[in-house]
Design a binder for these strands. Structure first.
Length: 550
RNA sequence: GGUGCCUUGGUCAAGUGGUCAAGACGUUAGCCUCUCACGCUGAAAUCAGGGGUUCGAUCCCCCUAGGCACUACCA
Protein backbone atom coordinates (compact mmCIF):
# COMPACT_ATOMS: atom_id res chain seq x y z
CA UNK A 1 0.00 0.00 0.00
CA UNK A 2 1.32 3.36 -1.00
CA UNK A 3 0.11 5.54 1.84
CA UNK A 4 1.29 8.73 0.21
CA UNK A 5 -0.93 8.04 -2.76
CA UNK A 6 -3.82 7.29 -0.44
CA UNK A 7 -3.31 10.59 1.34
CA UNK A 8 -3.18 12.42 -1.95
CA UNK A 9 -6.30 10.65 -3.17
CA UNK A 10 -8.24 11.59 -0.06
CA UNK A 11 -7.01 15.16 0.43
CA UNK A 12 -5.90 16.58 -2.90
CA UNK A 13 -7.02 20.04 -1.83
CA UNK A 14 -4.61 20.16 1.10
CA UNK A 15 -1.40 21.73 -0.11
CA UNK A 16 -0.09 23.10 3.16
CA UNK A 17 2.35 20.98 5.15
CA UNK A 18 2.57 20.40 8.88
CA UNK A 19 5.72 22.50 8.85
CA UNK A 20 3.77 25.43 7.44
CA UNK A 21 1.45 25.38 10.44
CA UNK A 22 4.28 24.90 12.90
CA UNK A 23 5.91 27.98 11.44
CA UNK A 24 2.66 29.94 11.54
CA UNK A 25 2.24 29.27 15.25
CA UNK A 26 5.68 29.57 16.80
CA UNK A 27 6.44 28.83 20.43
CA UNK A 28 5.14 31.58 22.66
CA UNK A 29 7.58 34.08 23.98
CA UNK A 30 6.72 33.95 27.66
CA UNK A 31 8.72 34.16 30.87
CA UNK A 32 9.95 30.99 32.52
CA UNK A 33 7.17 29.14 34.29
CA UNK A 34 4.33 31.01 32.59
CA UNK A 35 1.39 28.73 31.99
CA UNK A 36 -0.83 28.74 28.95
CA UNK A 37 -4.35 27.47 29.58
CA UNK A 38 -7.55 27.45 27.69
CA UNK A 39 -11.23 27.09 28.20
CA UNK A 40 -12.88 25.02 25.51
CA UNK A 41 -16.62 25.16 25.84
CA UNK A 42 -19.05 23.85 23.28
CA UNK A 43 -21.44 26.67 22.46
CA UNK A 44 -24.61 25.26 23.91
CA UNK A 45 -25.74 28.27 25.86
CA UNK A 46 -26.54 27.77 29.50
CA UNK A 47 -23.63 28.09 31.90
CA UNK A 48 -23.76 27.23 35.57
CA UNK A 49 -21.67 27.49 38.69
CA UNK A 50 -19.87 24.27 37.86
CA UNK A 51 -18.57 25.77 34.64
CA UNK A 52 -17.29 28.77 36.54
CA UNK A 53 -15.66 26.45 39.04
CA UNK A 54 -13.70 24.80 36.24
CA UNK A 55 -12.93 28.01 34.37
CA UNK A 56 -11.47 29.65 37.44
CA UNK A 57 -8.71 27.06 37.52
CA UNK A 58 -7.66 27.94 33.99
CA UNK A 59 -7.80 31.62 34.74
CA UNK A 60 -5.81 31.46 37.97
CA UNK A 61 -3.16 29.08 36.70
CA UNK A 62 -2.44 31.31 33.71
CA UNK A 63 -2.67 34.72 35.29
CA UNK A 64 -0.89 33.92 38.51
CA UNK A 65 2.07 32.69 36.48
CA UNK A 66 2.15 35.59 34.05
CA UNK A 67 0.87 33.37 31.26
CA UNK A 68 -2.03 33.33 28.86
CA UNK A 69 -5.58 32.11 29.19
CA UNK A 70 -7.53 31.87 25.97
CA UNK A 71 -11.01 30.92 24.90
CA UNK A 72 -11.48 28.37 22.17
CA UNK A 73 -14.93 27.48 20.97
CA UNK A 74 -15.30 23.76 20.45
CA UNK A 75 -18.01 23.71 17.86
CA UNK A 76 -17.15 20.62 15.88
CA UNK A 77 -20.57 19.19 16.51
CA UNK A 78 -22.84 20.86 13.99
CA UNK A 79 -25.98 19.89 15.84
CA UNK A 80 -25.36 21.69 19.07
CA UNK A 81 -24.65 25.32 18.38
CA UNK A 82 -27.04 27.69 20.08
CA UNK A 83 -27.54 31.18 18.71
CA UNK A 84 -25.92 33.87 20.82
CA UNK A 85 -24.37 31.38 23.19
CA UNK A 86 -20.82 32.65 22.86
CA UNK A 87 -21.40 36.32 23.74
CA UNK A 88 -23.55 35.14 26.62
CA UNK A 89 -20.83 32.84 27.85
CA UNK A 90 -18.19 35.52 27.61
CA UNK A 91 -20.24 38.10 29.44
CA UNK A 92 -21.25 35.68 32.19
CA UNK A 93 -17.65 34.68 32.80
CA UNK A 94 -16.48 38.25 32.62
CA UNK A 95 -19.04 39.29 35.22
CA UNK A 96 -17.43 36.85 37.61
CA UNK A 97 -13.93 38.04 36.83
CA UNK A 98 -12.85 35.54 34.24
CA UNK A 99 -11.36 37.39 31.31
CA UNK A 100 -9.42 35.99 28.40
CA UNK A 101 -6.22 37.31 26.91
CA UNK A 102 -6.99 35.92 23.51
CA UNK A 103 -9.42 33.79 21.60
CA UNK A 104 -13.10 34.18 20.91
CA UNK A 105 -14.63 37.57 21.73
CA UNK A 106 -18.17 38.83 21.60
CA UNK A 107 -17.47 40.48 18.25
CA UNK A 108 -14.96 38.10 16.70
CA UNK A 109 -11.63 36.96 17.98
CA UNK A 110 -8.19 38.24 18.87
CA UNK A 111 -4.76 36.64 19.11
CA UNK A 112 -2.08 35.15 16.92
CA UNK A 113 -2.95 31.49 17.32
CA UNK A 114 -6.39 31.41 15.73
CA UNK A 115 -8.82 30.72 14.36
CA UNK A 116 -10.28 30.05 17.79
CA UNK A 117 -13.45 28.46 16.51
CA UNK A 118 -12.71 24.86 15.74
CA UNK A 119 -15.19 24.85 12.89
CA UNK A 120 -12.90 27.34 11.14
CA UNK A 121 -9.81 25.17 11.52
CA UNK A 122 -10.76 22.44 9.13
CA UNK A 123 -7.77 22.95 6.83
CA UNK A 124 -5.39 22.66 9.77
CA UNK A 125 -6.87 19.41 11.02
CA UNK A 126 -6.91 17.94 7.54
CA UNK A 127 -3.26 18.74 7.05
CA UNK A 128 -2.37 16.60 10.02
CA UNK A 129 -4.86 13.91 9.13
CA UNK A 130 -3.23 13.77 5.73
CA UNK A 131 0.15 13.43 7.36
CA UNK A 132 -1.02 10.53 9.49
CA UNK A 133 -2.54 8.80 6.49
CA UNK A 134 0.61 9.25 4.47
CA UNK A 135 2.50 7.54 7.27
CA UNK A 136 0.03 4.70 7.52
CA UNK A 137 -1.19 5.86 10.94
CA UNK A 138 -4.76 6.57 9.88
CA UNK A 139 -7.12 5.27 7.26
CA UNK A 140 -10.51 5.86 5.68
CA UNK A 141 -13.38 3.77 6.99
CA UNK A 142 -16.52 3.44 4.90
CA UNK A 143 -18.70 1.65 7.42
CA UNK A 144 -22.05 3.30 7.85
CA UNK A 145 -23.26 4.35 11.27
CA UNK A 146 -25.74 1.51 11.08
CA UNK A 147 -22.99 -1.03 10.47
CA UNK A 148 -21.02 0.29 13.40
CA UNK A 149 -24.09 0.17 15.60
CA UNK A 150 -24.70 -3.42 14.56
CA UNK A 151 -21.14 -4.40 15.40
CA UNK A 152 -21.57 -2.81 18.79
CA UNK A 153 -24.81 -4.66 19.39
CA UNK A 154 -23.20 -7.97 18.48
CA UNK A 155 -20.25 -7.27 20.71
CA UNK A 156 -22.48 -6.48 23.63
CA UNK A 157 -24.48 -9.63 23.02
CA UNK A 158 -21.27 -11.65 23.00
CA UNK A 159 -19.90 -9.79 25.99
CA UNK A 160 -16.76 -8.57 24.31
CA UNK A 161 -15.50 -5.03 24.59
CA UNK A 162 -17.40 -2.82 22.18
CA UNK A 163 -15.70 -0.66 19.59
CA UNK A 164 -13.83 -0.68 16.34
CA UNK A 165 -10.55 -2.52 16.83
CA UNK A 166 -8.77 -5.64 15.65
CA UNK A 167 -11.04 -7.86 13.59
CA UNK A 168 -13.87 -5.33 13.84
CA UNK A 169 -11.84 -2.70 12.02
CA UNK A 170 -12.95 -4.03 8.68
CA UNK A 171 -11.60 -1.24 6.54
CA UNK A 172 -8.24 -1.05 8.18
CA UNK A 173 -6.44 -2.62 5.28
CA UNK A 174 -8.43 -1.73 2.22
CA UNK A 175 -6.31 -1.53 -0.92
CA UNK A 176 -5.84 1.73 -2.74
CA UNK A 177 -8.05 0.39 -5.51
CA UNK A 178 -10.84 -0.49 -3.12
CA UNK A 179 -10.72 2.95 -1.64
CA UNK A 180 -10.76 4.51 -5.07
CA UNK A 181 -13.73 2.43 -6.09
CA UNK A 182 -15.77 3.25 -2.99
CA UNK A 183 -15.11 6.93 -3.43
CA UNK A 184 -16.09 6.67 -7.07
CA UNK A 185 -19.30 5.03 -5.87
CA UNK A 186 -19.93 8.06 -3.75
CA UNK A 187 -19.63 6.32 -0.40
CA UNK A 188 -19.17 8.49 2.68
CA UNK A 189 -16.28 7.80 4.98
CA UNK A 190 -14.59 8.85 8.20
CA UNK A 191 -10.91 8.79 9.03
CA UNK A 192 -9.91 6.44 11.80
CA UNK A 193 -6.68 6.35 13.73
CA UNK A 194 -4.81 3.11 13.30
CA UNK A 195 -4.13 2.11 16.89
CA UNK A 196 -1.28 -0.19 17.70
CA UNK A 197 -2.12 -0.23 21.38
CA UNK A 198 -2.47 -3.30 23.52
CA UNK A 199 -4.98 -3.15 26.38
CA UNK A 200 -2.86 -5.59 28.34
CA UNK A 201 -0.08 -3.04 28.42
CA UNK A 202 -0.47 -0.16 30.79
CA UNK A 203 0.58 3.43 30.34
CA UNK A 204 1.61 5.51 33.31
CA UNK A 205 0.32 9.03 33.19
CA UNK A 206 0.98 11.98 35.43
CA UNK A 207 -1.85 14.22 36.45
CA UNK A 208 -1.06 17.49 38.20
CA UNK A 209 -3.96 17.05 40.60
CA UNK A 210 -4.08 13.31 41.13
CA UNK A 211 -0.52 12.19 40.64
CA UNK A 212 0.30 8.95 38.83
CA UNK A 213 -2.51 7.17 37.04
CA UNK A 214 -2.07 3.84 35.29
CA UNK A 215 -4.39 2.90 32.42
CA UNK A 216 -4.60 0.25 29.72
CA UNK A 217 -3.35 1.36 26.33
CA UNK A 218 -6.00 2.34 23.86
CA UNK A 219 -6.61 -0.22 21.14
CA UNK A 220 -9.60 1.43 19.49
CA UNK A 221 -9.36 2.78 15.99
CA UNK A 222 -11.15 5.94 17.03
CA UNK A 223 -12.62 8.33 14.52
CA UNK A 224 -10.44 11.40 14.19
CA UNK A 225 -12.18 13.08 11.27
CA UNK A 226 -15.92 12.91 10.92
CA UNK A 227 -17.92 12.55 7.75
CA UNK A 228 -18.63 16.27 7.82
CA UNK A 229 -14.92 16.99 7.58
CA UNK A 230 -14.48 18.21 11.14
CA UNK A 231 -12.43 16.40 13.77
CA UNK A 232 -13.69 14.64 16.86
CA UNK A 233 -12.80 16.08 20.25
CA UNK A 234 -9.83 13.75 20.57
CA UNK A 235 -8.09 14.96 17.48
CA UNK A 236 -9.04 18.59 17.80
CA UNK A 237 -7.75 18.67 21.36
CA UNK A 238 -4.37 17.27 20.39
CA UNK A 239 -3.85 19.45 17.32
CA UNK A 240 -5.14 22.64 18.91
CA UNK A 241 -3.38 22.37 22.20
CA UNK A 242 -0.16 21.67 20.39
CA UNK A 243 -0.48 24.46 17.85
CA UNK A 244 -1.87 26.96 20.31
CA UNK A 245 1.03 26.08 22.59
CA UNK A 246 -1.07 25.17 25.59
CA UNK A 247 1.09 24.18 28.54
CA UNK A 248 -1.64 23.01 30.94
CA UNK A 249 -4.75 21.21 29.85
CA UNK A 250 -7.39 21.71 32.53
CA UNK A 251 -10.46 19.62 31.87
CA UNK A 252 -13.08 17.56 33.64
CA UNK A 253 -12.27 14.17 35.07
CA UNK A 254 -14.62 12.68 32.50
CA UNK A 255 -11.68 12.88 30.12
CA UNK A 256 -9.45 10.57 32.09
CA UNK A 257 -11.03 7.62 30.31
CA UNK A 258 -9.96 8.77 26.89
CA UNK A 259 -6.59 10.07 27.97
CA UNK A 260 -4.75 7.03 26.52
CA UNK A 261 -6.19 7.94 23.12
CA UNK A 262 -4.77 11.42 23.39
CA UNK A 263 -1.40 10.07 24.45
CA UNK A 264 -1.26 7.89 21.34
CA UNK A 265 -2.21 10.81 19.16
CA UNK A 266 0.48 13.05 20.61
CA UNK A 267 3.03 10.29 20.01
CA UNK A 268 1.85 9.57 16.49
CA UNK A 269 2.22 13.24 15.64
CA UNK A 270 5.60 13.39 17.33
CA UNK A 271 4.58 16.07 19.78
CA UNK A 272 5.43 16.71 23.36
CA UNK A 273 2.49 16.42 25.75
CA UNK A 274 1.29 19.35 27.83
CA UNK A 275 0.64 18.93 31.55
CA UNK A 276 -2.80 17.61 32.43
CA UNK A 277 -5.08 18.66 35.27
CA UNK A 278 -8.23 16.61 35.53
CA UNK A 279 -10.45 18.44 37.92
CA UNK A 280 -13.60 17.31 39.68
CA UNK A 281 -17.04 18.63 39.15
CA UNK A 282 -19.21 20.52 41.56
CA UNK A 283 -21.90 18.30 43.02
CA UNK A 284 -25.17 18.78 44.82
CA UNK A 285 -27.54 16.59 46.75
CA UNK A 286 -30.41 15.55 44.58
CA UNK A 287 -33.65 16.62 46.20
CA UNK A 288 -35.49 13.51 45.10
CA UNK A 289 -32.99 10.73 45.62
CA UNK A 290 -30.99 12.31 48.42
CA UNK A 291 -27.72 11.27 46.84
CA UNK A 292 -24.79 13.20 45.52
CA UNK A 293 -24.73 14.03 41.84
CA UNK A 294 -23.09 16.50 39.56
CA UNK A 295 -24.71 19.78 38.69
CA UNK A 296 -27.09 19.50 35.80
CA UNK A 297 -28.22 22.30 33.59
CA UNK A 298 -31.59 20.72 33.20
CA UNK A 299 -32.29 19.87 36.84
CA UNK A 300 -30.56 22.80 38.49
CA UNK A 301 -31.59 26.02 36.82
CA UNK A 302 -31.05 27.70 40.17
CA UNK A 303 -27.34 27.07 39.81
CA UNK A 304 -27.16 28.94 36.54
CA UNK A 305 -24.85 31.92 36.67
CA UNK A 306 -27.68 34.24 35.72
CA UNK A 307 -29.44 33.19 38.87
CA UNK A 308 -26.65 34.38 41.13
CA UNK A 309 -26.47 37.61 39.26
CA UNK A 310 -30.19 38.06 39.70
CA UNK A 311 -30.01 37.34 43.41
CA UNK A 312 -27.32 39.95 43.50
CA UNK A 313 -24.34 38.05 44.82
CA UNK A 314 -21.19 40.09 44.51
CA UNK A 315 -19.08 38.50 41.79
CA UNK A 316 -16.12 38.85 44.08
CA UNK A 317 -17.90 36.80 46.73
CA UNK A 318 -18.73 34.01 44.32
CA UNK A 319 -15.14 33.99 43.20
CA UNK A 320 -13.90 33.96 46.78
CA UNK A 321 -16.17 31.05 47.58
CA UNK A 322 -15.02 29.10 44.57
CA UNK A 323 -11.41 29.72 45.50
CA UNK A 324 -12.00 28.35 48.99
CA UNK A 325 -13.32 25.08 47.64
CA UNK A 326 -10.84 24.93 44.77
CA UNK A 327 -7.66 25.14 46.84
CA UNK A 328 -7.69 23.57 50.28
CA UNK A 329 -5.23 26.07 51.73
CA UNK A 330 -7.05 29.15 50.46
CA UNK A 331 -9.18 29.64 53.55
CA UNK A 332 -6.25 29.66 55.90
CA UNK A 333 -4.37 31.98 53.61
CA UNK A 334 -7.33 34.32 53.62
CA UNK A 335 -7.50 34.34 57.42
CA UNK A 336 -3.80 35.16 57.56
CA UNK A 337 -4.10 37.77 54.79
CA UNK A 338 -7.51 39.35 55.19
CA UNK A 339 -6.82 42.37 53.04
CA UNK A 340 -4.67 40.93 50.30
CA UNK A 341 -6.27 40.74 46.85
CA UNK A 342 -7.34 37.19 46.07
CA UNK A 343 -5.24 37.23 42.91
CA UNK A 344 -2.09 37.18 44.97
CA UNK A 345 -2.89 33.79 46.39
CA UNK A 346 -0.55 31.14 45.07
CA UNK A 347 -3.07 28.93 43.32
CA UNK A 348 -1.84 25.41 42.74
CA UNK A 349 -3.07 22.17 41.24
CA UNK A 350 -1.49 20.24 44.08
CA UNK A 351 -3.97 21.81 46.49
CA UNK A 352 -6.98 20.78 44.50
CA UNK A 353 -9.21 18.02 45.74
CA UNK A 354 -9.68 14.90 43.69
CA UNK A 355 -13.09 14.08 45.09
CA UNK A 356 -16.22 15.89 44.03
CA UNK A 357 -17.19 18.90 46.12
CA UNK A 358 -20.73 19.50 47.24
CA UNK A 359 -22.05 22.98 46.62
CA UNK A 360 -22.74 24.64 49.98
CA UNK A 361 -24.98 27.68 50.06
CA UNK A 362 -24.23 28.28 53.75
CA UNK A 363 -20.59 28.62 52.97
CA UNK A 364 -21.18 30.89 50.00
CA UNK A 365 -23.27 33.14 52.23
CA UNK A 366 -20.66 33.19 54.94
CA UNK A 367 -17.92 34.07 52.50
CA UNK A 368 -20.13 36.72 51.00
CA UNK A 369 -20.71 38.32 54.41
CA UNK A 370 -16.99 38.61 54.94
CA UNK A 371 -16.44 40.11 51.53
CA UNK A 372 -19.21 42.66 51.95
CA UNK A 373 -18.10 43.61 55.43
CA UNK A 374 -14.96 45.02 53.87
CA UNK A 375 -16.75 47.12 51.29
CA UNK A 376 -17.50 50.80 51.80
CA UNK A 377 -21.05 52.06 52.06
CA UNK A 378 -20.59 53.68 48.64
CA UNK A 379 -19.58 50.40 47.07
CA UNK A 380 -22.56 48.64 48.57
CA UNK A 381 -24.84 51.38 47.36
CA UNK A 382 -23.44 51.41 43.84
CA UNK A 383 -23.70 47.67 43.52
CA UNK A 384 -27.20 47.70 44.91
CA UNK A 385 -28.25 50.32 42.42
CA UNK A 386 -26.73 48.51 39.44
CA UNK A 387 -28.49 45.37 40.50
CA UNK A 388 -31.85 47.09 40.95
CA UNK A 389 -31.63 48.85 37.60
CA UNK A 390 -31.28 45.50 35.91
CA UNK A 391 -33.65 43.38 37.93
CA UNK A 392 -35.99 45.67 39.86
CA UNK A 393 -36.43 49.08 38.20
CA UNK A 394 -39.01 50.30 40.73
CA UNK A 395 -36.56 49.66 43.52
CA UNK A 396 -33.88 51.49 41.59
CA UNK A 397 -36.02 54.64 41.68
CA UNK A 398 -36.34 54.36 45.40
CA UNK A 399 -32.62 53.81 45.81
CA UNK A 400 -31.79 56.83 43.70
CA UNK A 401 -34.20 59.08 45.55
CA UNK A 402 -32.73 58.06 48.90
CA UNK A 403 -29.04 57.87 48.25
CA UNK A 404 -27.93 59.94 51.25
CA UNK A 405 -30.14 58.00 53.59
CA UNK A 406 -28.97 54.65 52.27
CA UNK A 407 -25.34 55.59 52.58
CA UNK A 408 -25.97 56.25 56.25
CA UNK A 409 -27.82 52.98 56.61
CA UNK A 410 -25.08 50.98 54.96
CA UNK A 411 -22.58 52.76 57.13
CA UNK A 412 -24.02 51.40 60.38
CA UNK A 413 -21.28 49.49 62.18
CA UNK A 414 -19.19 49.45 59.05
CA UNK A 415 -15.44 49.69 58.90
CA UNK A 416 -14.54 49.20 62.55
CA UNK A 417 -12.59 46.37 64.08
CA UNK A 418 -15.76 44.33 64.45
CA UNK A 419 -17.92 45.20 61.48
CA UNK A 420 -21.42 43.87 61.12
CA UNK A 421 -21.59 40.84 58.87
CA UNK A 422 -25.17 40.57 57.86
CA UNK A 423 -25.16 41.66 54.27
CA UNK A 424 -25.10 38.81 51.77
CA UNK A 425 -26.52 39.75 48.40
CA UNK A 426 -28.24 42.67 46.71
CA UNK A 427 -31.69 41.16 46.99
CA UNK A 428 -31.15 40.28 50.62
CA UNK A 429 -29.69 43.71 51.37
CA UNK A 430 -32.73 45.42 49.96
CA UNK A 431 -34.94 43.29 52.14
CA UNK A 432 -32.70 43.99 55.08
CA UNK A 433 -33.12 47.78 54.85
CA UNK A 434 -36.63 47.81 53.45
CA UNK A 435 -38.28 48.93 56.69
CA UNK A 436 -36.86 52.40 56.25
CA UNK A 437 -39.26 52.91 53.37
CA UNK A 438 -42.96 53.23 54.00
CA UNK A 439 -43.84 51.38 50.82
CA UNK A 440 -41.96 48.31 52.00
CA UNK A 441 -42.50 48.53 55.75
CA UNK A 442 -44.17 45.40 57.12
CA UNK A 443 -45.00 44.30 60.63
CA UNK A 444 -43.20 40.99 60.93
CA UNK A 445 -43.00 40.55 64.67
CA UNK A 446 -45.50 40.75 67.51
CA UNK A 447 -44.96 43.01 70.48
CA UNK A 448 -43.19 41.26 73.38
CA UNK A 449 -45.58 39.21 75.52
CA UNK A 450 -44.07 40.78 78.64
CA UNK A 451 -45.65 44.11 77.80
CA UNK A 452 -49.36 44.70 78.12
CA UNK A 453 -51.21 46.93 75.68
CA UNK A 454 -51.60 49.54 78.35
CA UNK A 455 -47.90 49.48 79.10
CA UNK A 456 -47.03 49.76 75.44
CA UNK A 457 -49.27 52.78 75.09
CA UNK A 458 -47.68 54.30 78.13
CA UNK A 459 -44.19 53.54 76.84
CA UNK A 460 -44.96 55.24 73.57
CA UNK A 461 -46.52 58.22 75.29
CA UNK A 462 -43.61 58.85 77.63
CA UNK A 463 -41.13 58.08 74.90
CA UNK A 464 -42.57 60.71 72.61
CA UNK A 465 -42.69 63.23 75.41
CA UNK A 466 -39.06 62.79 76.24
CA UNK A 467 -37.64 62.18 72.80
CA UNK A 468 -35.08 64.61 71.51
CA UNK A 469 -33.09 64.19 68.33
CA UNK A 470 -30.24 66.03 69.97
CA UNK A 471 -29.64 63.27 72.51
CA UNK A 472 -26.57 61.17 71.99
CA UNK A 473 -26.74 57.42 72.29
CA UNK A 474 -26.28 57.27 76.04
CA UNK A 475 -28.59 60.18 76.81
CA UNK A 476 -31.22 58.50 74.68
CA UNK A 477 -30.80 55.21 76.43
CA UNK A 478 -30.92 56.83 79.85
CA UNK A 479 -34.40 58.04 78.99
CA UNK A 480 -35.43 54.53 78.06
CA UNK A 481 -34.18 53.37 81.41
CA UNK A 482 -36.26 55.94 83.19
CA UNK A 483 -39.40 54.73 81.45
CA UNK A 484 -38.41 51.14 82.07
CA UNK A 485 -38.03 51.59 85.78
CA UNK A 486 -41.15 53.73 86.16
CA UNK A 487 -43.34 51.07 84.62
CA UNK A 488 -42.00 48.24 86.74
CA UNK A 489 -39.52 46.66 84.39
CA UNK A 490 -35.92 45.78 85.21
CA UNK A 491 -33.29 48.17 83.97
CA UNK A 492 -30.75 45.39 83.92
CA UNK A 493 -31.77 42.21 82.17
CA UNK A 494 -29.75 40.21 84.65
CA UNK A 495 -31.90 41.41 87.49
CA UNK A 496 -34.94 40.20 85.67
CA UNK A 497 -33.37 36.82 84.98
CA UNK A 498 -32.46 36.42 88.64
CA UNK A 499 -35.84 37.50 89.94
CA UNK A 500 -38.39 37.16 87.20
CA UNK A 501 -41.24 37.51 89.70
CA UNK A 502 -40.26 40.99 90.77
CA UNK A 503 -40.51 42.57 87.31
CA UNK A 504 -42.85 42.58 84.35
CA UNK A 505 -39.87 42.29 82.04
CA UNK A 506 -36.67 44.14 81.37
CA UNK A 507 -35.29 47.02 79.38
CA UNK A 508 -34.86 44.82 76.35
CA UNK A 509 -38.58 44.23 76.20
CA UNK A 510 -39.33 47.90 76.54
CA UNK A 511 -36.93 48.95 73.86
CA UNK A 512 -38.18 46.17 71.63
CA UNK A 513 -41.66 47.68 71.72
CA UNK A 514 -40.12 50.75 70.18
CA UNK A 515 -37.99 48.70 67.82
CA UNK A 516 -40.96 46.78 66.51
CA UNK A 517 -42.98 49.94 66.11
CA UNK A 518 -40.18 51.55 64.10
CA UNK A 519 -38.90 48.62 62.08
CA UNK A 520 -41.62 46.01 62.22
CA UNK A 521 -39.03 43.52 63.42
CA UNK A 522 -37.68 42.21 66.67
CA UNK A 523 -34.12 42.39 65.44
CA UNK A 524 -32.31 45.35 64.00
CA UNK A 525 -29.11 47.30 64.24
CA UNK A 526 -28.72 49.83 67.00
CA UNK A 527 -32.00 51.69 67.54
CA UNK A 528 -30.54 55.09 68.30
CA UNK A 529 -28.61 55.08 65.02
CA UNK A 530 -31.67 54.00 63.10
CA UNK A 531 -33.63 56.87 64.57
CA UNK A 532 -30.96 59.38 63.67
CA UNK A 533 -31.44 58.27 60.08
CA UNK A 534 -35.22 58.13 60.20
CA UNK A 535 -35.86 61.52 61.72
CA UNK A 536 -38.45 62.54 64.25
CA UNK A 537 -41.35 62.79 61.89
CA UNK A 538 -41.13 59.22 60.65
CA UNK A 539 -40.43 57.93 64.14
CA UNK A 540 -43.54 59.49 65.58
CA UNK A 541 -45.66 58.39 62.66
CA UNK A 542 -44.54 54.81 63.10
CA UNK A 543 -45.17 54.93 66.85
CA UNK A 544 -48.67 56.24 66.27
CA UNK A 545 -49.34 53.62 63.64
CA UNK A 546 -48.15 50.89 65.96
CA UNK A 547 -50.36 52.18 68.75
CA UNK A 548 -53.38 52.15 66.50
CA UNK A 549 -52.69 48.51 65.64
CA UNK A 550 -52.77 47.42 69.28
C1' G B 1 -20.19 -6.09 31.27
C1' G B 2 -15.22 -3.55 30.80
C1' U B 3 -12.11 0.51 32.49
C1' G B 4 -10.74 4.48 35.54
C1' C B 5 -11.41 7.91 39.52
C1' C B 6 -13.16 8.78 44.44
C1' U B 7 -14.39 7.54 50.04
C1' U B 8 -11.57 11.59 57.27
C1' G B 9 -17.63 14.92 61.54
C1' G B 10 -24.04 17.22 58.37
C1' U B 11 -20.62 20.13 54.54
C1' C B 12 -15.52 21.83 52.77
C1' A B 13 -11.24 19.60 54.45
C1' A B 14 -5.54 19.28 56.96
C1' G B 15 -2.72 15.34 58.23
C1' U B 16 1.08 11.42 59.72
C1' G B 17 3.54 4.20 60.55
C1' G B 18 3.00 6.19 67.22
C1' U B 19 -1.14 13.12 67.16
C1' C B 20 -5.80 14.42 72.87
C1' A B 21 -6.84 13.26 64.24
C1' A B 22 -5.89 20.72 62.51
C1' G B 23 -9.00 24.56 60.72
C1' A B 24 -13.59 26.66 58.31
C1' C B 25 -19.13 26.55 57.51
C1' G B 26 -23.34 24.72 59.95
C1' U B 27 -25.46 23.09 64.81
C1' U B 28 -25.18 24.14 69.98
C1' A B 29 -23.96 26.14 75.38
C1' G B 30 -22.31 30.50 77.52
C1' C B 31 -20.05 35.49 77.80
C1' C B 32 -20.62 40.54 75.94
C1' U B 33 -25.30 43.09 75.34
C1' C B 34 -31.56 47.24 74.73
C1' U B 35 -32.70 43.08 70.17
C1' C B 36 -29.84 41.38 66.13
C1' A B 37 -25.15 41.19 64.14
C1' C B 38 -19.95 41.35 65.42
C1' G B 39 -16.41 39.44 68.84
C1' C B 40 -14.79 35.96 72.64
C1' U B 41 -14.78 31.09 75.40
C1' G B 42 -16.62 26.18 75.17
C1' A B 43 -19.45 21.60 73.34
C1' A B 44 -21.23 17.66 70.28
C1' A B 45 -19.73 15.34 65.74
C1' U B 46 -15.20 12.08 61.37
C1' C B 47 -10.76 8.21 59.48
C1' A B 48 -16.86 3.33 54.63
C1' G B 49 -16.47 -2.25 56.05
C1' G B 50 -13.38 -6.73 56.35
C1' G B 51 -8.78 -8.97 56.10
C1' G B 52 -3.55 -8.73 56.22
C1' U B 53 1.92 -6.41 56.98
C1' U B 54 3.72 -4.32 61.71
C1' C B 55 5.39 -3.89 68.50
C1' G B 56 1.71 -0.34 66.54
C1' A B 57 -2.30 1.42 61.23
C1' U B 58 -6.53 6.80 59.45
C1' C B 59 -1.74 6.40 56.84
C1' C B 60 1.18 0.54 53.40
C1' C B 61 -1.09 -4.07 50.71
C1' C B 62 -5.49 -7.05 49.34
C1' C B 63 -10.72 -7.75 49.11
C1' U B 64 -15.75 -5.88 49.56
C1' A B 65 -19.31 -2.06 49.45
C1' G B 66 -20.90 2.64 47.92
C1' G B 67 -20.55 7.12 44.87
C1' C B 68 -18.99 9.25 40.18
C1' A B 69 -17.48 8.97 35.23
C1' C B 70 -16.03 6.99 30.48
C1' U B 71 -17.03 2.97 27.24
C1' A B 72 -20.37 7.90 20.03
C1' C B 73 -18.96 10.20 13.33
C1' C B 74 -21.19 14.61 21.63
C1' A B 75 -17.96 17.39 23.86
Amino acid sequence: MDYKKLAELLFPEITKTPEDWEAAYPARNLPEGAKVTRLGPSPTGFIHLGNLYGALTDERLAHKSGGVCFLRIEDTDDKREVEGAVPMLISALSYFGINFDEGACADGEKGEYGPYWQSARSEIYKTFVKKLISEGKAYPCFMTEEEVAQIRADQEANKVNPGIYGEYAKHRDLTLEEVQQRIADGQDYVIRFRSNGDPNTYVNLKDEIRGEISMPENNQDVVILKKIGLPTYHFAHVVDDHLMRTTHVVRGEAWIGSWPIHVQLFEALGWEMPAFCHNTVLMKIDDETGSKRKLSKRKDPELGLGYYKELGYFPEAVREYLLTILNSDYEEWRIANPDTPADEFDFSCAKMSSSGTLFDLNKLNDVSKDVLAKKSAEEIYDFELDWAEEFAPEKAELLKANKEKLLKIFDIDRGGAKPRKDLISASQIFEFVSYFFDDYFKVETEMPAECSKEDIKEIFKRYKESYSEADDNSAWFDKIKVITEALGYAVKPKDFKKNPDQYKGHVGHVSNCIRIALTGRGNSPDLWTIQQIMGKEQIFARLDAAESRL
